[in-house]
């Protein structure tokens, strides 16, 4: 039987399973509905660049102009006030890191964050042209301003890893000490590499299907535009799917625990990681980022949430490839371990 046929069978087996439909589709859709009820202003959020003014020959002109999501224009204070009152501009930078605004809002808060960070960087002795753009613009205050954004990015990050449920099921089913079918499989000459490939393709296909369905609901049904950078985001999500499936394989290999128990472990783990990344609202994430930043450095859900936020909401691609490489490296490690363990395996008890 070739990989394609095996993949089709694995997909059929999982697709008809209630657990697949509940955890990868119903549960995220329920969360979406819950988020929509609690953050009803989300649909009004438009992800547009921020128009800002700056006085002539200001020392921050060059640094501010290099930020992708800020449209900077040199002008006088009077002209800026006129444009701000007309609603055409968010803020005006002048003097010694001073920000002139005529109203408060998300764009004004982001500008204030940017300015504050630049000021603290300059005060620490770093020249303005060496401002660190990485991560700075999604600090606590801006996330606090748009908590629903973080909720949705965190939700999407979480479901991107849900491929693990299918791969847990596939690998557990093929383990002789965990499933009756596994004894038959292990007694056969069928290649473990082919099984692994079919499991990965099958789990990826199932999860990408459910991910796509959920994203369509969010974008079309709820009218929420979270993706200004669609293709880089899709690539990021596919990478995360790959990692999630790999993690499921590792979990599926753990002996003496059946697939149902492993699924519960995976659910608890992924919800925990998603909570740390902002699924339950930004405050927990802020506490973690402020006090134990290394946790979210190694939390794949948090890395994915932050990177999606940066590229789509802030136009900042600085950590994009490091996140992709981090996720791909995790996946590579998971797949290598799985293949090594699957090959030549015999069991102490069946």
């Amino acid at each position: 039987m070739n990989i394609f046929r095996m993949t089709i069978y694995l997909i059929i087996i999982n697709f008809k399973d209630f657990g697949y439909w509940f955890w990868t589709l119903c549960y995220p859709l329920l969360l979406c509905a819950l988020f929509m009820m609690t953050t009803s202003n989300m649909s009004n959020t438009e992800l547009e660049d921020i128009n800002a003014g700056i006085e002539n020959d200001h020392p921050l002109s060059e640094a501010l102009a290099s930020i992708e999501f800020i449209n900077l224009e040199t002008m006088t204070e009077d002209a800026a006030v006129e444009q701000m009152e007309a609603g055409e501009m968010a803020a005006y930078v002048h003097g010694d890191y001073e920000l002139l605004v005529t109203e408060s809002g998300f764009n004004q808060t982001v500008m204030e964050d940017v300015l504050t960070q630049m000021q603290s960087t300059v005060e620490s002795g770093i020249p303005p042209q060496h401002f660190d753009m990485d991560a700075s613009f999604i600090d606590a205050s801006s996330q606090d301003t748009q908590p629903e954004t973080v909720l949705f990015y965190s939700l999407i990050a979480m479901i991107a890893f849900y491929g693990m449920f299918s791969s847990i099921e596939f690998i557990s089913t093929m383990q002789p000490n965990l499933s009756h079918m596994g004894a038959r499989f292990a007694a056969s000459p069928y290649s473990k590499g082919k099984l692994l490939a079919a499991s990965v393709i099958g789990a990826m296909a199932l999860n990408l299907f459910s991910n796509t369905f959920i994203l369509i609901v969010i974008i079309i049904f709820y009218q929420i535009n979270l993706f200004t950078e669609l293709w880089p985001t899709i690539f990021l999500l596919i990478t995360a799917n790959f990692t999630g499936v790999g993690f499921g394989l590792i979990l599926g290999l753990v002996p003496k625990i059946n697939a149902a128990a492993k699924t519960i472990i995976a659910i608890v783990l992924i919800i925990g990681l998603a909570a740390l990344s902002g699924l339950m609202g930004p405050p927990l994430k802020q506490v973690i980022d402020g006090n134990l930043p290394w946790i979210n450095t190694f939390n794949p859900v948090a890395r994915l949430t932050d990177t999606m936020y940066r590229i789509n909401f802030l136009g900042n691609f600085n950590d994009y490839w490091s996140t992709v490489i981090f996720l791909a490296a995790l996946a590579l490690a998971f797949y290598t371990i799985t293949l090594v363990v699957l090959r030549r395996k015999q069991y102490d008890s069946i």
């Binding site: 002789p176 004894a183 292990a186 007694a187 015999q346 069991y347 102490d348 008890s349 069946i350």
Partner: peptide, 9 residues
């Protein structure tokens, strides 16, 4: 049987 099938070491 499991030993003969090399399922068990």
């Amino acid at each position: 049987i499991n030993c003969m099938l090399s399922l068990l070491a």
